[in-house]
Protein backbone atom coordinates (compact mmCIF):
# COMPACT_ATOMS: atom_id res chain seq x y z
CA UNK A 1 0.00 0.00 0.00
CA UNK A 2 2.85 2.38 0.84
CA UNK A 3 4.39 1.51 -2.50
CA UNK A 4 1.14 2.26 -4.32
CA UNK A 5 0.52 5.58 -2.62
CA UNK A 6 4.14 6.61 -2.85
CA UNK A 7 4.22 5.86 -6.58
CA UNK A 8 0.95 7.67 -7.10
CA UNK A 9 2.15 10.79 -5.33
CA UNK A 10 5.49 10.99 -7.13
CA UNK A 11 3.78 10.20 -10.39
CA UNK A 12 1.31 13.04 -10.06
CA UNK A 13 3.96 15.50 -8.95
CA UNK A 14 6.40 14.74 -11.75
CA UNK A 15 3.42 14.73 -14.09
CA UNK A 16 2.94 18.40 -13.28
CA UNK A 17 6.25 19.24 -14.89
CA UNK A 18 5.49 17.01 -17.85
CA UNK A 19 2.20 18.83 -18.24
CA UNK A 20 3.96 22.17 -18.67
CA UNK A 21 6.15 20.78 -21.44
CA UNK A 22 3.07 19.34 -23.10
CA UNK A 23 1.10 22.56 -22.83
CA UNK A 24 3.83 24.48 -24.61
CA UNK A 25 3.90 21.99 -27.46
CA UNK A 26 0.15 21.78 -27.73
CA UNK A 27 -0.28 25.55 -28.08
CA UNK A 28 2.35 25.71 -30.80
CA UNK A 29 0.79 22.82 -32.65
CA UNK A 30 -2.72 24.09 -32.14
CA UNK A 31 -2.05 27.47 -33.68
CA UNK A 32 0.51 26.60 -36.34
CA UNK A 33 0.08 22.88 -37.08
CA UNK A 34 3.83 22.55 -36.71
CA UNK A 35 5.28 19.70 -34.69
CA UNK A 36 8.07 21.35 -32.81
CA UNK A 37 10.98 18.92 -32.61
CA UNK A 38 13.06 21.59 -30.92
CA UNK A 39 10.72 21.75 -27.95
CA UNK A 40 13.06 19.89 -25.61
CA UNK A 41 15.93 22.09 -26.72
CA UNK A 42 13.92 25.19 -25.92
CA UNK A 43 13.35 23.68 -22.50
CA UNK A 44 17.11 23.18 -22.27
CA UNK A 45 17.68 26.87 -22.94
CA UNK A 46 15.32 27.60 -20.05
CA UNK A 47 17.32 25.25 -17.84
CA UNK A 48 20.59 27.03 -18.59
CA UNK A 49 18.90 30.35 -17.92
CA UNK A 50 17.74 29.10 -14.55
CA UNK A 51 21.16 27.72 -13.79
CA UNK A 52 22.95 30.98 -14.47
CA UNK A 53 20.36 33.07 -12.67
CA UNK A 54 20.97 30.83 -9.68
CA UNK A 55 24.76 30.61 -9.76
CA UNK A 56 25.50 34.18 -10.86
CA UNK A 57 22.77 36.12 -9.12
CA UNK A 58 21.66 33.70 -6.46
CA UNK A 59 18.05 33.73 -7.62
CA UNK A 60 16.18 30.66 -6.44
CA UNK A 61 15.01 28.50 -9.37
CA UNK A 62 11.39 28.79 -8.35
CA UNK A 63 11.59 32.57 -8.09
CA UNK A 64 13.56 32.81 -11.32
CA UNK A 65 10.48 31.64 -13.19
CA UNK A 66 9.41 35.27 -13.08
CA UNK A 67 12.47 36.14 -15.18
CA UNK A 68 12.48 32.99 -17.30
CA UNK A 69 8.93 33.35 -18.54
CA UNK A 70 9.34 36.74 -20.24
CA UNK A 71 12.84 35.98 -21.53
CA UNK A 72 11.77 32.69 -23.02
CA UNK A 73 8.71 34.36 -24.48
CA UNK A 74 10.93 36.76 -26.38
CA UNK A 75 13.21 33.92 -27.42
CA UNK A 76 10.28 31.93 -28.77
CA UNK A 77 8.81 34.94 -30.54
CA UNK A 78 12.11 35.60 -32.29
CA UNK A 79 12.40 31.96 -33.34
CA UNK A 80 8.92 32.15 -34.78
CA UNK A 81 9.49 35.42 -36.61
CA UNK A 82 12.84 34.40 -38.09
CA UNK A 83 12.29 30.76 -38.94
CA UNK A 84 8.98 29.07 -38.25
CA UNK A 85 7.01 31.82 -39.93
CA UNK A 86 8.69 31.08 -43.25
CA UNK A 87 7.59 27.48 -43.38
CA UNK A 88 4.02 27.68 -42.14
CA UNK A 89 2.65 26.70 -45.53
CA UNK A 90 5.46 24.30 -46.37
CA UNK A 91 5.37 20.53 -46.55
CA UNK A 92 5.09 18.89 -43.14
CA UNK A 93 8.39 17.03 -43.50
CA UNK A 94 10.17 20.32 -44.13
CA UNK A 95 8.62 21.79 -41.01
CA UNK A 96 9.80 18.83 -38.99
CA UNK A 97 13.32 19.05 -40.35
CA UNK A 98 13.53 22.76 -39.79
CA UNK A 99 12.71 22.36 -36.12
CA UNK A 100 15.17 19.47 -35.88
CA UNK A 101 17.83 21.71 -37.40
CA UNK A 102 16.98 24.50 -34.98
CA UNK A 103 17.25 22.04 -32.10
CA UNK A 104 20.71 20.96 -33.26
CA UNK A 105 21.80 24.58 -33.51
CA UNK A 106 20.53 25.35 -30.00
CA UNK A 107 22.09 22.36 -28.30
CA UNK A 108 25.41 22.66 -30.07
CA UNK A 109 25.70 26.41 -29.56
CA UNK A 110 25.16 25.75 -25.87
CA UNK A 111 27.88 23.15 -26.01
CA UNK A 112 30.32 25.57 -27.59
CA UNK A 113 29.46 28.26 -25.10
CA UNK A 114 29.33 26.27 -21.87
CA UNK A 115 31.07 22.95 -22.77
CA UNK A 116 29.22 19.69 -22.57
CA UNK A 117 29.71 19.43 -18.81
CA UNK A 118 26.73 18.49 -16.71
CA UNK A 119 25.56 21.39 -14.64
CA UNK A 120 23.97 20.58 -11.35
CA UNK A 121 21.90 23.00 -9.47
CA UNK A 122 21.99 22.32 -5.77
CA UNK A 123 19.51 24.05 -3.54
CA UNK A 124 19.04 23.52 0.16
CA UNK A 125 15.88 21.56 -0.59
CA UNK A 126 17.12 19.49 -3.53
CA UNK A 127 16.80 16.21 -1.67
CA UNK A 128 14.42 17.06 1.14
CA UNK A 129 10.87 15.90 1.59
CA UNK A 130 7.75 16.37 3.64
CA UNK A 131 6.71 13.32 5.63
CA UNK A 132 3.08 12.44 5.49
CA UNK A 133 1.77 9.34 7.23
CA UNK A 134 4.78 7.25 6.32
CA UNK A 135 4.97 8.68 2.84
CA UNK A 136 7.52 11.14 1.59
CA UNK A 137 6.57 14.02 -0.64
CA UNK A 138 9.47 15.59 -2.45
CA UNK A 139 9.73 19.25 -1.44
CA UNK A 140 11.01 20.61 -4.78
CA UNK A 141 8.44 18.60 -6.72
CA UNK A 142 5.61 19.73 -4.48
CA UNK A 143 6.54 23.38 -4.94
CA UNK A 144 6.95 23.00 -8.68
CA UNK A 145 3.59 21.29 -8.87
CA UNK A 146 1.94 24.23 -7.15
CA UNK A 147 3.63 26.65 -9.55
CA UNK A 148 2.46 24.55 -12.48
CA UNK A 149 -1.11 24.68 -11.24
CA UNK A 150 -0.99 28.46 -10.88
CA UNK A 151 0.56 28.98 -14.33
CA UNK A 152 -1.80 26.59 -16.05
CA UNK A 153 -4.81 28.21 -14.43
CA UNK A 154 -3.60 31.67 -15.42
CA UNK A 155 -2.92 30.57 -18.98
CA UNK A 156 -6.30 28.92 -19.23
CA UNK A 157 -8.00 32.06 -18.00
CA UNK A 158 -6.01 34.14 -20.46
CA UNK A 159 -7.08 31.98 -23.39
CA UNK A 160 -10.69 31.74 -22.32
CA UNK A 161 -11.50 35.19 -21.04
CA UNK A 162 -9.36 37.74 -22.83
CA UNK A 163 -9.80 39.00 -26.38
CA UNK A 164 -6.27 38.06 -27.35
CA UNK A 165 -6.79 34.61 -25.91
CA UNK A 166 -9.92 34.17 -27.93
CA UNK A 167 -8.14 35.36 -31.04
CA UNK A 168 -5.44 32.75 -30.47
CA UNK A 169 -8.08 30.08 -30.09
CA UNK A 170 -9.87 31.24 -33.19
CA UNK A 171 -6.61 31.03 -35.15
CA UNK A 172 -6.11 27.53 -33.84
CA UNK A 173 -9.60 26.51 -34.92
CA UNK A 174 -9.46 27.86 -38.43
CA UNK A 175 -6.61 29.96 -39.63
CA UNK A 176 -8.28 31.27 -42.77
CA UNK A 177 -11.59 32.04 -41.14
CA UNK A 178 -9.76 33.84 -38.36
CA UNK A 179 -7.90 35.90 -40.91
CA UNK A 180 -11.14 36.78 -42.64
CA UNK A 181 -12.55 37.87 -39.30
CA UNK A 182 -9.79 40.43 -39.12
CA UNK A 183 -7.53 38.60 -36.69
CA UNK A 184 -3.86 39.21 -37.24
CA UNK A 185 -2.90 35.55 -37.50
CA UNK A 186 0.79 36.28 -37.95
CA UNK A 187 0.86 38.09 -34.67
CA UNK A 188 -1.15 35.30 -33.04
CA UNK A 189 1.42 32.77 -34.25
CA UNK A 190 4.25 34.77 -32.76
CA UNK A 191 2.31 35.04 -29.54
CA UNK A 192 1.59 31.32 -29.50
CA UNK A 193 5.18 30.33 -30.11
CA UNK A 194 6.29 32.75 -27.45
CA UNK A 195 3.86 31.25 -24.93
CA UNK A 196 4.89 27.74 -25.96
CA UNK A 197 8.56 28.53 -25.49
CA UNK A 198 7.98 30.18 -22.15
CA UNK A 199 6.04 27.15 -20.92
CA UNK A 200 8.88 24.86 -21.99
CA UNK A 201 11.38 27.18 -20.35
CA UNK A 202 9.35 27.20 -17.16
CA UNK A 203 9.24 23.43 -17.14
CA UNK A 204 13.02 23.52 -17.48
CA UNK A 205 13.29 25.91 -14.56
CA UNK A 206 11.02 23.82 -12.37
CA UNK A 207 12.82 20.56 -13.01
CA UNK A 208 16.29 22.07 -12.58
CA UNK A 209 16.59 21.67 -8.78
CA UNK A 210 15.98 17.92 -9.00
CA UNK A 211 17.51 17.13 -12.36
CA UNK A 212 20.64 18.14 -14.21
CA UNK A 213 21.48 20.28 -17.19
CA UNK A 214 23.53 19.60 -20.29
CA UNK A 215 23.28 20.60 -23.94
CA UNK A 216 21.66 17.37 -25.14
CA UNK A 217 19.15 17.11 -22.31
CA UNK A 218 16.27 18.15 -24.55
CA UNK A 219 15.70 15.19 -26.84
CA UNK A 220 14.27 12.88 -24.17
CA UNK A 221 11.75 15.55 -23.20
CA UNK A 222 10.79 16.27 -26.79
CA UNK A 223 9.68 12.70 -27.16
CA UNK A 224 7.79 12.84 -23.89
CA UNK A 225 6.10 16.06 -24.93
CA UNK A 226 4.83 14.37 -28.11
CA UNK A 227 3.30 11.55 -26.14
CA UNK A 228 1.62 13.89 -23.68
CA UNK A 229 0.26 16.16 -26.35
CA UNK A 230 -1.22 13.43 -28.49
CA UNK A 231 -2.61 11.72 -25.43
CA UNK A 232 -4.40 14.85 -24.34
CA UNK A 233 -5.45 15.90 -27.80
CA UNK A 234 -3.34 18.20 -29.93
CA UNK A 235 -4.19 21.78 -29.19
CA UNK A 236 -6.00 21.15 -25.93
CA UNK A 237 -4.50 22.70 -22.83
CA UNK A 238 -6.66 20.76 -20.41
CA UNK A 239 -5.80 17.64 -22.37
CA UNK A 240 -2.06 18.28 -22.15
CA UNK A 241 -2.34 18.85 -18.42
CA UNK A 242 -4.22 15.63 -18.00
CA UNK A 243 -1.84 13.85 -20.37
CA UNK A 244 1.18 15.01 -18.38
CA UNK A 245 -0.22 13.73 -15.11
CA UNK A 246 -1.30 10.44 -16.69
CA UNK A 247 2.13 9.84 -18.16
CA UNK A 248 3.76 10.71 -14.85
CA UNK A 249 1.56 8.24 -12.99
CA UNK A 250 1.92 5.50 -15.63
CA UNK A 251 5.70 5.79 -15.50
CA UNK A 252 5.73 5.70 -11.77
CA UNK A 253 3.30 2.79 -11.45
CA UNK A 254 5.01 0.97 -14.30
CA UNK A 255 8.33 1.19 -12.49
CA UNK A 256 6.75 -0.03 -9.26
CA UNK A 257 4.63 -2.89 -10.56
CA UNK A 258 6.03 -3.93 -13.93
CA UNK A 259 9.67 -2.99 -14.08
CA UNK A 260 11.65 0.13 -14.63
CA UNK A 261 12.98 -1.06 -17.96
CA UNK A 262 9.58 -1.80 -19.50
CA UNK A 263 7.76 1.26 -18.20
CA UNK A 264 8.52 3.30 -21.31
CA UNK A 265 7.03 0.58 -23.50
CA UNK A 266 3.86 0.89 -21.42
CA UNK A 267 3.87 4.63 -21.99
CA UNK A 268 4.25 4.27 -25.76
CA UNK A 269 1.67 1.49 -25.89
CA UNK A 270 -0.89 3.73 -24.19
CA UNK A 271 0.08 6.45 -26.63
CA UNK A 272 -0.62 4.19 -29.61
CA UNK A 273 -3.81 2.90 -28.10
CA UNK A 274 -5.14 6.42 -27.71
CA UNK A 275 -4.08 7.26 -31.26
CA UNK A 276 -6.01 4.28 -32.55
CA UNK A 277 -9.12 4.50 -30.45
CA UNK A 278 -9.44 8.24 -30.31
CA UNK A 279 -6.90 9.96 -32.57
CA UNK A 280 -8.12 13.32 -31.44
CA UNK A 281 -6.87 12.54 -27.94
CA UNK A 282 -8.64 12.49 -24.62
CA UNK A 283 -9.83 16.08 -24.74
CA UNK A 284 -9.44 16.96 -28.37
CA UNK A 285 -12.24 17.72 -30.73
CA UNK A 286 -12.02 15.42 -33.71
CA UNK A 287 -10.46 16.96 -36.76
CA UNK A 288 -9.58 15.38 -40.04
Amino acid sequence: MTLFLQSLISGILIGGVYALIGIGLTIIFGVMRVINFAHGDIMMVGMYMTYFLFTLFGIDPFVSVLVTIPLMFVFGAILQKLFINRILGALPQNQILLTIGLGLIMSNSMMLAFTSDYKILTTSYSSSSYRLAGLSVSKPLAISFLITVVITAALYRFLMKTDTGQAIRATAQDREAAQLMGINVKWMSILAFGIGASMAGTAGALISPTYYIFPQVGSAFTLKAFVITVLGGMGSIVGATLGGVIIGVVESMGAAYISSDWKDVVVFAIFLLVLLVKPSGLMGTSRT
Binding site: I35, F226, D261, L272, L275, P279
Partner: peptide, 26 residues
Protein backbone atom coordinates in the same frame (compact mmCIF):
# COMPACT_ATOMS: atom_id res chain seq x y z
CA UNK B 1 -1.54 0.74 -36.68
CA UNK B 2 -0.14 3.91 -38.17
CA UNK B 3 -1.94 4.15 -41.49
CA UNK B 4 -5.19 4.81 -39.74
CA UNK B 5 -3.64 8.13 -38.90
CA UNK B 6 -2.74 11.03 -41.09
CA UNK B 7 -0.28 13.88 -41.26
CA UNK B 8 1.42 14.76 -38.02
CA UNK B 9 -0.31 11.93 -36.17
CA UNK B 10 1.26 9.44 -38.53
CA UNK B 11 4.70 10.96 -37.96
CA UNK B 12 4.33 10.72 -34.20
CA UNK B 13 2.94 7.20 -34.31
CA UNK B 14 5.85 6.05 -36.44
CA UNK B 15 8.27 7.48 -33.88
CA UNK B 16 6.42 5.78 -31.04
CA UNK B 17 6.46 2.37 -32.71
CA UNK B 18 10.16 2.65 -33.46
CA UNK B 19 10.81 3.54 -29.83
CA UNK B 20 8.83 0.50 -28.69
CA UNK B 21 10.96 -1.65 -30.98
CA UNK B 22 14.13 -0.11 -29.58
CA UNK B 23 13.19 -0.65 -25.95
CA UNK B 24 11.97 -4.18 -26.68
CA UNK B 25 15.27 -5.10 -28.31
CA UNK B 26 17.05 -3.52 -25.36
Amino acid sequence: ICFRLRGPYFVLASIAVAEIVRITVL
